[in-house]
Amino acid sequence: MENNTHKLEIFRGLLKFKSNQTKIWGVLIFLSIVTTIEVVLGIVKPEILMNTFLSTKLINWIFIILTLVKAYYIAWDFMHLRDETSGLQASIVITLIFLIAYLVFIILVEGNYIYDVMYEGFVSWNF
């Protein structure tokens, strides 16, 4: 059907592939590298990354950012979002980012609050 409508460059044009197939293998290698970094970090747990930053450990922020990077490449290259119109891209991504960010913010703040209540309250939870 659409033979040469694929956009073949990733990393903002830094890497351009000759065909759609080589691009797929390239993205696989990239995703594998990112996953390997995650696993190695998770096993080694470098002491320097265990410091708290913005209410969780630094290493957790690295995991979350790497996850979002992986999600971007899965959606953009495996699910062909790169080849769709910008309108379709925006209606999928903005909807999800807005709703999920809101949900995460409000529910995690609430969870933290309940922790505080239980921690500072006069009720013993250890019996």
Binding site: I100, I107, L108, G111, N112, I114, Y115, Y119
Partner: peptide, 21 residues
């Protein structure tokens, strides 16, 4: 479906923050 899964994962995050220690 992504929203369903994020609902699950956020609920997990809620319980985890509630019992963070």
């Amino acid at each position: 479906d992504a929203l369903t899964f994020s609902g699950f994962l956020v609920a997990y995050g809620f319980s985890r923050f509630k019992n963070i220690d």
